[in-house]
């Protein structure tokens, strides 16, 4: 069953066609990779899913409900969480607080005035947050400030902030960019492990090693349009992909 359906999506920036008649179907429980050269419109596409950008025409349906023209926090409350290309975290807060805040959002909704409770006595939220921090391997640093983390660890923290919400759709924008090979492999393992929980994932990635070890379906974008779509094996050999994306070089 398709959990995310994109129909005839268009977006122009001035004269530039950033998104050109995009159609996309993401099956529930799968990992769907979107690849393509810089400027192909991959991040723009994700932006329309999370309410950051309103397209000119077209439709996006998540679980048969329209996503467009909603506030970002409403979309998240529907079960969509995004990990950004540059980590968006609460730098001045501890790691534990960073993960507890999304947990509260999941439990209490987009606004609740809980001014009389105590952070350290919210045991259920505390436990969930601790558990997720262990999952991503950051439990030892739980009381440190998020800004003190390395770039790779910040990404893992941001991933933990999404995982703790147990989203139905996880959007990952280059989850391994700037990571060492060892960190990249750790992240792949982590993503595979959480794949077992049945979270649908859309991954934008430049690293083909990551794409081919994770994705079940790949859409290739170039100049705002989806040019090819298919299983990893089909994509590997497709001449159109090699032309657009790699300038003819072999994968």
């Amino acid at each position: 069953m398709g959990i995310l359906k994109v129909r005839n999506l268009n977006k122009n920036f001035g004269g530039l066609k950033a998104l050109n008649e995009i159609n996309l179907d993401v099956e529930e429980g799968t990992v769907h990779a979107i690849i393509g050269p810089n400027g192909a419109g991959k991040s723009t596409l994700l932006n329309t899913f999370v309410g950051r950008l309103v397209p000119d025409t077209g439709e996006v349906n998540f679980d048969d409900q329209p996503l467009l023209n909603r506030q970002p926090y409403e979309i998240n409350q529907m079960g969509v969480c995004r990990v950004f290309q540059t980590p968006e975290i609460f730098g001045e807060l501890s790691l534990l607080d960073n993960v507890m805040i999304p947990t509260f959002a999941k439990r209490d909704g987009s606004f609740v005035l809980n001014g009389w409770g105590r952070m350290d006595r919210e045991t259920d939220v505390n436990d969930q947050a601790e558990h997720v921090l262990e999952d991503v391997g950051l439990a030892d640093q739980r009381n440190e400030l998020a800004n003190s983390l390395s770039r790779g660890d910040k990404r893992r923290l941001e991933l933990a902030m999404c995982l703790v919400q147990a989203p139905r759709l996880l959007l990952l924008d280059e989850p391994t960019a700037g990571m060492s090979r060892a960190d990249t492999n750790n992240t792949i393992d982590l993503l595979k492990r959480i794949g077992e929980r049945g979270i649908t994932k859309i991954v934008i990635e430049h690293d083909m090693h990551v794409v081919f070890s994770l994705a079940e379906k790949i859409s290739v974008m170039a100049q705002g349009a989806v040019i090819v779509e298919g299983a990893p094996d089909e994509i590997k050999g497709d001449p159109k992909v090699q032309e657009a994306y790699l300038g003819g070089a072999h994968l």
Partner: peptide, 13 residues
Amino acid sequence: KSNQQRMNYTGIN
């Protein structure tokens, strides 16, 4: 104070 953007994308208004 820290990051309103993240708050928004994390489901909080």
